[in-house]
Design a protein around this nucleic acid. Structure first.
Lengths: 164, 164
DNA sequence: CATAAATTACAAAAAAAATTGTAATTTATG
DNA sequence: CATAAATTACAATTTTTTTTGTAATTTATG
């Protein structure tokens, strides 16, 4: 037996325009981090919702496919932006935002940006060694420059990691 | 009269595989910053080239369209990653990398990431005010959380700006 | 443990982004 | 200042990414 529509928790729902703006804000954040619009919309909706939401709630509210909602929820769970919240009356899984935003930002950075940065740093080191071993003078000079740049940005990376 | 092909400056050209790896490295950097593959390839090619390159040099080496090369070069110039280098013998514009990488990283960040972050910060502030004025309790609580997160990441933003 | 309800996986379709080709414009040179 | 050479702008095409729909799988409940 499918669930009945749940009654609103809030007496006073958000003005639709504010709702839209808040969701748009999170769409932009997710886009900055390289996630598709749908993921940002789902997170935005969960962010503004007073109660945990099921995948079907999201499908209904955002007019998206069931499988799109499922994949988006999975992505958000993977990075720890949302977490499951068992609703006693229902068999469906419900989700609410991860309220520990320290965890959230850490996971966002770890999931997307830090790994890439570290992979690139590793590759740079390898190329550096190769070029210094066998490369022409002009390239060695350019890697010298990269080294200096690395020195400048090292504190930034350290700070990023310290958030994690 | 079109230019004759310029003779190689280096006696010993790079091994093709190293060349490919170096270009791939820059493609990945550019992708992290949200630029298309072609822009990364162009920068990579200029990075490894001992002498300044013309748009047509790039077309030939990378097998890309003339207009694609033009647009990519423009984008790279706009962010200051490369700079024009007049070649006396030729009428074509030539380009070489901006060797001051301090300038380079600063411009990359300024051109893409910082503006977005600042726009988002501005929007957050506006939404925060609106929600606190008229929003429901649960949303106000969530903006409280955002505020705390902001406190944690403020040093990061400051450091980013200090690089600029 | 059988069945119903939900989730997940994956190929197909749709949407978005990047690249190309052509035409218009600008810039340099005789 | 006319012409040739190069650059730039922009619509059309191609490619990539995102979203959807369906089928297979998993999970919970009587």
């Amino acid at each position: 037996m499918p669930d009945e529509p749940t009654p609103p928790v809030d007496a006073q729902p958000l003005p639709p325009e504010l709702e839209r703006e808040l969701i748009t804000f999170w769409v932009q954040v997710s886009s900055l981090l390289g996630y598709p619009r749908s993921v940002g919309e789902i997170f935005g909706l969960i962010f503004i919702s007073p109660a945990p939401l099921s995948a079907d709630d999201i499908v209904e509210k955002l007019n998206m496919s069931r499988s799109g909602a499922g994949q988006g929820l999975k992505a958000l769970q993977d990075i720890g932006a949302i977490k499951p919240a068992h609703q006693l009356a229902s068999r469906k899984e419900h989700y609410q935002m991860q309220t520990d935003l320290g965890v959230l930002i850490k996971l966002l950075l770890n999931a997307r940006i830090l790994p890439k940065l570290e992979e690139l740093a590793q590759q740079r080191a390898t190329l550096d060694a190769t070029v210094r071993a066998q490369g022409p003078a002009h390239l060695i000079q350019r890697f010298d420059k990269l080294d200096r740049w690395r020195g400048k940005t090292a504190p930034l990376l350290a700070l990023l990691k310290s958030l994690s």
